Simulated scan of single mutants.
Amino acid sequence: MLRVHDSPESNESALLALLNLAVKDETNKIKIVEAGALEPIIGFLKSQNSNLQEYATASLLTLSASPINKPVISAYGAIPLLVEILRYGSSQAKVEALKALSNLSTYTDNVSIILATKPIPPIVDLLKTCKKSSKTAEKCCALIESLMEFDEGRTALTSEEGGVLAVVEVLENGSVHSREYAVGALLTMCESDRCKYREPILKEGVIPGLLELTVQGTPKSQTKAQTLLRLLRDSPYPRSELQPDTVENIVCNIISQIDGDEQSGKAKKMLAEMVQVSMEQSLRHLQQRALVCTPSDLSINSCASEVSLK
Protein backbone atom coordinates (compact mmCIF):
# COMPACT_ATOMS: atom_id res chain seq x y z
CA MET A 1 0.00 0.00 0.00
CA LEU A 2 2.84 2.40 0.89
CA ARG A 3 5.63 2.51 -1.70
CA VAL A 4 8.31 5.17 -1.86
CA HIS A 5 8.37 5.04 -5.66
CA ASP A 6 4.61 5.45 -6.11
CA SER A 7 3.14 8.83 -6.97
CA PRO A 8 2.89 11.35 -4.12
CA GLU A 9 -0.88 11.39 -4.49
CA SER A 10 -1.26 7.64 -4.00
CA ASN A 11 1.07 7.67 -1.00
CA GLU A 12 -0.79 10.61 0.51
CA SER A 13 -4.03 8.67 0.18
CA ALA A 14 -2.43 5.62 1.77
CA LEU A 15 -1.10 7.67 4.68
CA LEU A 16 -4.50 9.24 5.24
CA ALA A 17 -6.07 5.80 5.26
CA LEU A 18 -3.57 4.62 7.88
CA LEU A 19 -4.22 7.72 9.94
CA ASN A 20 -7.94 7.04 9.94
CA LEU A 21 -7.32 3.48 11.05
CA ALA A 22 -4.90 4.45 13.81
CA VAL A 23 -6.65 7.43 15.40
CA LYS A 24 -8.14 6.47 18.77
CA ASP A 25 -7.44 2.79 18.16
CA GLU A 26 -4.53 1.36 20.13
CA THR A 27 -4.73 -2.05 18.50
CA ASN A 28 -4.56 -0.62 14.99
CA LYS A 29 -1.58 1.55 15.93
CA ILE A 30 0.35 -1.56 16.94
CA LYS A 31 -0.79 -3.62 13.95
CA ILE A 32 0.25 -0.90 11.49
CA VAL A 33 3.77 -0.91 12.91
CA GLU A 34 3.89 -4.70 13.00
CA ALA A 35 2.82 -4.78 9.34
CA GLY A 36 6.00 -2.94 8.37
CA ALA A 37 4.58 0.51 7.69
CA LEU A 38 7.27 2.35 9.63
CA GLU A 39 10.02 2.02 7.04
CA PRO A 40 8.16 3.77 4.19
CA ILE A 41 6.61 6.32 6.57
CA ILE A 42 10.03 7.30 7.88
CA GLY A 43 11.30 7.40 4.32
CA PHE A 44 8.61 9.97 3.51
CA LEU A 45 10.01 12.24 6.25
CA LYS A 46 12.88 12.91 3.84
CA SER A 47 10.54 13.76 0.97
CA GLN A 48 10.82 17.11 -0.77
CA ASN A 49 7.05 17.04 -1.16
CA SER A 50 5.78 19.11 1.77
CA ASN A 51 2.34 17.46 1.80
CA LEU A 52 3.81 13.99 1.89
CA GLN A 53 6.21 15.03 4.64
CA GLU A 54 3.35 16.47 6.68
CA TYR A 55 1.24 13.33 6.31
CA ALA A 56 4.18 11.15 7.29
CA THR A 57 4.88 13.31 10.34
CA ALA A 58 1.23 13.21 11.34
CA SER A 59 1.27 9.43 10.97
CA LEU A 60 4.26 9.13 13.30
CA LEU A 61 2.55 11.45 15.77
CA THR A 62 -0.46 9.15 15.88
CA LEU A 63 1.56 5.92 16.01
CA SER A 64 3.88 7.30 18.71
CA ALA A 65 0.93 7.68 21.07
CA SER A 66 1.14 3.93 21.68
CA PRO A 67 3.59 3.02 24.47
CA ILE A 68 4.49 -0.19 22.63
CA ASN A 69 5.45 1.71 19.48
CA LYS A 70 7.70 4.31 21.12
CA PRO A 71 10.93 2.25 21.28
CA VAL A 72 10.26 0.73 17.85
CA ILE A 73 9.85 4.12 16.18
CA SER A 74 13.08 5.28 17.79
CA ALA A 75 14.91 2.13 16.67
CA TYR A 76 13.96 2.91 13.07
CA GLY A 77 15.84 6.22 13.30
CA ALA A 78 12.84 8.52 13.29
CA ILE A 79 14.02 10.93 16.00
CA PRO A 80 16.81 12.75 14.08
CA LEU A 81 14.49 13.14 11.09
CA LEU A 82 11.72 14.57 13.27
CA VAL A 83 14.15 17.10 14.73
CA GLU A 84 15.20 18.07 11.21
CA ILE A 85 11.56 18.71 10.37
CA LEU A 86 11.26 20.70 13.59
CA ARG A 87 14.07 22.88 12.22
CA TYR A 88 13.23 23.17 8.55
CA GLY A 89 9.75 21.81 7.92
CA SER A 90 6.54 23.66 7.16
CA SER A 91 4.69 25.28 10.04
CA GLN A 92 2.26 22.37 10.30
CA ALA A 93 5.00 19.75 10.01
CA LYS A 94 6.99 21.46 12.77
CA VAL A 95 4.06 21.26 15.16
CA GLU A 96 3.39 17.61 14.30
CA ALA A 97 7.09 16.76 14.70
CA LEU A 98 7.22 18.48 18.09
CA LYS A 99 4.19 16.55 19.34
CA ALA A 100 5.64 13.27 18.06
CA LEU A 101 8.93 13.99 19.86
CA SER A 102 7.01 14.82 23.02
CA ASN A 103 5.21 11.48 22.77
CA LEU A 104 8.47 9.63 22.20
CA SER A 105 10.17 11.39 25.12
CA THR A 106 7.87 9.66 27.60
CA TYR A 107 9.85 6.49 26.89
CA THR A 108 12.91 7.13 29.08
CA ASP A 109 15.55 5.71 26.74
CA ASN A 110 14.42 8.05 23.97
CA VAL A 111 15.22 11.25 25.87
CA SER A 112 18.99 10.91 25.49
CA ILE A 113 18.53 10.15 21.79
CA ILE A 114 16.46 13.30 21.38
CA LEU A 115 19.05 15.31 23.31
CA ALA A 116 21.84 14.10 21.01
CA THR A 117 20.12 15.81 18.07
CA LYS A 118 20.47 19.24 19.79
CA PRO A 119 16.74 20.02 19.69
CA ILE A 120 16.63 22.95 22.14
CA PRO A 121 17.09 25.77 19.56
CA PRO A 122 14.19 24.72 17.31
CA ILE A 123 11.99 23.95 20.32
CA VAL A 124 12.65 27.41 21.75
CA ASP A 125 12.03 29.02 18.36
CA LEU A 126 8.64 27.33 18.18
CA LEU A 127 7.85 28.20 21.80
CA LYS A 128 8.65 31.87 21.20
CA THR A 129 6.25 32.16 18.28
CA CYS A 130 3.31 30.05 19.45
CA LYS A 131 0.50 31.16 21.73
CA LYS A 132 1.61 30.47 25.28
CA SER A 133 -1.72 28.90 26.25
CA SER A 134 -1.71 26.56 23.23
CA LYS A 135 -1.22 22.82 23.07
CA THR A 136 2.00 23.48 21.15
CA ALA A 137 3.41 25.45 24.08
CA GLU A 138 2.38 22.64 26.41
CA LYS A 139 4.25 20.05 24.34
CA CYS A 140 7.28 22.35 24.06
CA CYS A 141 7.48 22.71 27.83
CA ALA A 142 6.86 19.02 28.44
CA LEU A 143 9.78 18.19 26.17
CA ILE A 144 11.98 20.89 27.70
CA GLU A 145 11.26 19.60 31.20
CA SER A 146 12.42 16.12 30.16
CA LEU A 147 15.59 17.53 28.60
CA MET A 148 16.42 19.58 31.72
CA GLU A 149 17.37 16.34 33.45
CA PHE A 150 20.62 16.49 31.46
CA ASP A 151 23.41 19.03 31.86
CA GLU A 152 23.65 19.40 28.10
CA GLY A 153 19.98 20.30 27.92
CA ARG A 154 20.23 22.86 30.72
CA THR A 155 23.28 24.47 29.14
CA ALA A 156 21.56 24.60 25.76
CA LEU A 157 18.48 26.33 27.17
CA THR A 158 20.43 29.02 29.01
CA SER A 159 22.72 29.53 26.00
CA GLU A 160 19.79 30.00 23.64
CA GLU A 161 18.77 33.65 23.47
CA GLY A 162 15.39 34.05 25.11
CA GLY A 163 15.26 30.38 26.06
CA VAL A 164 14.64 30.76 29.79
CA LEU A 165 12.39 33.76 29.15
CA ALA A 166 10.17 31.70 26.84
CA VAL A 167 9.67 29.14 29.62
CA VAL A 168 8.94 31.90 32.14
CA GLU A 169 6.31 33.37 29.80
CA VAL A 170 4.55 30.01 29.67
CA LEU A 171 4.75 29.80 33.46
CA GLU A 172 2.87 33.11 33.56
CA ASN A 173 0.38 32.70 30.72
CA GLY A 174 0.21 29.03 29.82
CA SER A 175 -2.45 26.41 30.34
CA VAL A 176 -2.66 24.51 33.61
CA HIS A 177 -0.48 21.68 32.30
CA SER A 178 1.92 24.02 30.49
CA ARG A 179 2.59 25.98 33.66
CA GLU A 180 3.24 22.76 35.54
CA TYR A 181 5.80 21.66 32.95
CA ALA A 182 7.39 25.13 32.89
CA VAL A 183 7.86 25.39 36.65
CA GLY A 184 9.09 21.80 36.65
CA ALA A 185 11.75 22.63 34.06
CA LEU A 186 12.98 25.67 36.00
CA LEU A 187 12.96 23.75 39.27
CA THR A 188 14.99 20.92 37.76
CA MET A 189 17.56 23.45 36.58
CA CYS A 190 17.83 25.16 39.95
CA GLU A 191 17.97 21.90 41.88
CA SER A 192 20.76 20.59 39.65
CA ASP A 193 23.01 23.62 40.23
CA ARG A 194 21.51 26.49 42.19
CA CYS A 195 24.59 28.71 41.91
CA LYS A 196 24.68 28.37 38.13
CA TYR A 197 21.01 28.77 37.28
CA ARG A 198 19.59 31.00 40.02
CA GLU A 199 20.54 34.28 38.33
CA PRO A 200 19.50 33.32 34.76
CA ILE A 201 16.07 32.36 36.10
CA LEU A 202 15.66 35.38 38.38
CA LYS A 203 16.63 37.94 35.75
CA GLU A 204 13.75 36.86 33.50
CA GLY A 205 11.19 38.07 36.04
CA VAL A 206 9.94 34.69 37.20
CA ILE A 207 8.73 35.80 40.65
CA PRO A 208 5.23 37.11 39.76
CA GLY A 209 4.37 33.91 37.92
CA LEU A 210 5.66 31.76 40.77
CA LEU A 211 3.65 33.77 43.29
CA GLU A 212 0.50 33.23 41.30
CA LEU A 213 1.20 29.50 41.05
CA THR A 214 1.60 29.19 44.82
CA VAL A 215 -2.02 30.30 45.17
CA GLN A 216 -3.80 29.35 41.95
CA GLY A 217 -1.79 26.46 40.51
CA THR A 218 -2.48 22.75 40.74
CA PRO A 219 -1.28 21.08 43.96
CA LYS A 220 1.79 19.84 42.10
CA SER A 221 2.48 23.30 40.62
CA GLN A 222 2.05 24.94 44.02
CA THR A 223 4.58 22.61 45.62
CA LYS A 224 7.09 23.10 42.82
CA ALA A 225 6.65 26.88 42.84
CA GLN A 226 7.19 27.07 46.60
CA THR A 227 10.29 24.88 46.36
CA LEU A 228 11.69 27.00 43.54
CA LEU A 229 11.03 30.20 45.48
CA ARG A 230 13.06 28.80 48.38
CA LEU A 231 15.93 27.97 46.05
CA LEU A 232 15.84 31.41 44.43
CA ARG A 233 16.18 33.37 47.66
CA ASP A 234 19.59 34.54 48.87
CA SER A 235 20.05 31.60 51.22
CA PRO A 236 18.49 28.21 50.42
CA TYR A 237 18.48 27.19 54.07
CA PRO A 238 15.46 27.53 56.42
CA ARG A 239 15.25 30.62 58.58
CA SER A 240 15.14 30.70 62.35
CA GLU A 241 11.92 30.57 64.32
CA LEU A 242 12.03 34.36 64.59
CA GLN A 243 11.85 34.57 60.79
CA PRO A 244 9.38 31.88 59.68
CA ASP A 245 10.04 30.16 56.37
CA THR A 246 6.82 31.41 54.78
CA VAL A 247 6.33 32.15 51.11
CA GLU A 248 5.89 35.82 51.99
CA ASN A 249 9.25 35.99 53.76
CA ILE A 250 10.98 34.07 51.00
CA VAL A 251 9.62 36.43 48.36
CA CYS A 252 10.46 39.55 50.37
CA ASN A 253 14.02 38.27 50.53
CA ILE A 254 14.10 37.76 46.76
CA ILE A 255 12.45 41.11 45.97
CA SER A 256 15.15 42.93 47.92
CA GLN A 257 17.71 41.53 45.47
CA ILE A 258 15.85 42.18 42.21
CA ASP A 259 17.32 44.84 39.96
CA GLY A 260 14.91 47.19 38.25
CA ASP A 261 11.93 49.05 39.66
CA GLU A 262 9.46 47.51 37.21
CA GLN A 263 10.20 43.88 38.10
CA SER A 264 10.42 44.65 41.81
CA GLY A 265 7.17 46.62 41.76
CA LYS A 266 5.34 43.87 39.90
CA ALA A 267 6.60 41.26 42.34
CA LYS A 268 5.53 43.37 45.34
CA LYS A 269 2.08 43.85 43.84
CA MET A 270 1.77 40.11 43.25
CA LEU A 271 2.87 39.42 46.82
CA ALA A 272 0.20 41.76 48.16
CA GLU A 273 -2.42 40.07 45.99
CA MET A 274 -1.23 36.65 47.10
CA VAL A 275 -1.55 37.62 50.76
CA GLN A 276 -5.04 39.02 50.09
CA VAL A 277 -6.13 35.82 48.34
CA SER A 278 -4.67 33.75 51.17
CA MET A 279 -6.62 35.78 53.73
CA GLU A 280 -9.83 35.43 51.72
CA GLN A 281 -9.33 31.67 51.46
CA SER A 282 -8.78 31.43 55.22
CA LEU A 283 -11.93 33.47 55.86
CA ARG A 284 -13.98 31.25 53.54
CA HIS A 285 -12.61 28.19 55.32
CA LEU A 286 -13.70 29.58 58.69
CA GLN A 287 -17.13 30.45 57.31
CA GLN A 288 -17.55 26.94 55.93
CA ARG A 289 -16.60 25.44 59.28
CA ALA A 290 -19.15 27.68 60.98
CA LEU A 291 -21.87 26.52 58.58
CA VAL A 292 -21.03 22.88 59.24
CA CYS A 293 -21.44 23.38 62.98
CA THR A 294 -24.92 22.07 63.97
CA PRO A 295 -27.24 23.43 66.70
CA SER A 296 -26.50 20.35 68.82
CA ASP A 297 -22.79 21.11 68.49
CA LEU A 298 -23.45 24.63 69.67
CA SER A 299 -25.47 23.49 72.70
CA ILE A 300 -22.80 20.97 73.68
CA ASN A 301 -20.09 23.60 73.34
CA SER A 302 -22.24 26.02 75.32
CA CYS A 303 -22.73 23.48 78.11
CA ALA A 304 -19.04 22.76 78.15
CA SER A 305 -18.34 26.46 78.48
CA GLU A 306 -20.78 26.76 81.36
CA VAL A 307 -19.21 23.81 83.16
CA SER A 308 -15.75 25.24 82.76
CA LEU A 309 -16.94 28.59 84.11
CA LYS A 310 -18.38 26.92 87.20
Results as ranks from 00 to 15, higher is better:
residue 1 M to A: 13
residue 2 L to K: 06
residue 3 R to Q: 14
residue 6 D to S: 14
residue 9 E to Q: 14
residue 11 N to S: 09
residue 12 E to M: 11
residue 12 E to H: 03
residue 13 S to M: 07
residue 14 A to D: 03
residue 18 L to Q: 02
residue 25 D to I: 01
residue 26 E to T: 11
residue 28 N to P: 02
residue 34 E to L: 10
residue 36 G to M: 09
residue 39 E to Y: 04
residue 41 I to G: 01
residue 42 I to L: 04
residue 42 I to N: 00
residue 49 N to D: 15
residue 51 N to E: 12
residue 67 P to M: 08
residue 67 P to C: 09
residue 67 P to T: 09
residue 69 N to T: 14
residue 70 K to S: 06
residue 80 P to L: 10
residue 86 L to G: 02
residue 87 R to V: 05
residue 96 E to T: 02
residue 96 E to K: 07
residue 105 S to H: 04
residue 106 T to L: 15
residue 109 D to N: 13
residue 118 K to E: 13
residue 123 I to D: 06
residue 141 C to A: 11
residue 141 C to T: 14
residue 142 A to K: 05
residue 144 I to M: 06
residue 147 L to Y: 00
residue 149 E to I: 03
residue 157 L to Y: 07
residue 162 G to D: 11
residue 163 G to S: 13
residue 164 V to D: 06
residue 167 V to S: 03
residue 169 E to D: 14
residue 172 E to L: 09
residue 177 H to T: 12
residue 178 S to W: 01
residue 179 R to P: 00
residue 183 V to F: 08
residue 183 V to W: 02
residue 184 G to P: 06
residue 186 L to M: 08
residue 192 S to L: 07
residue 195 C to A: 15
residue 195 C to N: 15
residue 196 K to E: 11
residue 198 R to E: 13
residue 200 P to R: 09
residue 201 I to V: 12
residue 202 L to H: 00
residue 211 L to W: 13
residue 211 L to E: 10
residue 213 L to T: 08
residue 213 L to G: 08
residue 214 T to V: 15
residue 215 V to E: 14
residue 216 Q to D: 14
residue 220 K to E: 14
residue 222 Q to P: 02
residue 222 Q to F: 06
residue 224 K to G: 02
residue 224 K to D: 04
residue 226 Q to S: 14
residue 230 R to V: 02
residue 236 P to N: 07
residue 242 L to C: 08
residue 245 D to A: 04
residue 250 I to T: 15
residue 253 N to A: 06
residue 255 I to R: 00
residue 265 G to T: 07
residue 268 K to T: 09
residue 269 K to I: 04
residue 269 K to E: 12
residue 273 E to L: 12
residue 275 V to A: 10
residue 284 R to W: 12
residue 288 Q to S: 15
residue 291 L to Y: 07
residue 292 V to P: 00
residue 292 V to F: 05
residue 297 D to I: 07
residue 306 E to S: 15
residue 307 V to A: 11
residue 308 S to Y: 12
residue 309 L to D: 13
